[in-house]
Design a binder for these strands. Sequence first.
DNA 1: GCTCTGACTATTC
DNA 2: CGAATAGCCAGAG
Length: 107
Amino acid sequence: MAVFDTSGDYTQAVLEVVADIPPGRVMTYGDVAWTFGRPGARAVGMVMRFHGSELPWWRVIRAGGHPPTGHEDAARAHYEEEGTPLLPATTPAGYRIDLAKAGWSPS
DNA sequence: GCTCTGACTATTC
DNA sequence: CGAATAGCCAGAG
């Protein structure tokens, strides 16, 4: 499987963009991918899974403001810690990020 | 160069 | 709202 490494340009781009997201702000996988001109939303997620250990992965969420699958609890802790605007929702996680306020785009 | 997988997205039921 | 389906892309084998 994609045993990721910083070898690929795509991976590097993802690492840079994610690392550049300020606290209290979030970007969707699609937006992050679009930032460096490549709609690989899934690929972005894979990079996070492998390098998430050293990245603010919770600042990268899915479209609709849902946290990454299987990491909803950990993500929520970071959001509250950074003051990221959350919204109550009838989702499995029980909440979702307020993209209208937390949504961020690289300058 | 083809196949498989995945922290995705959009559409449809 | 929730589950299922199909289409996406990048990288390893």
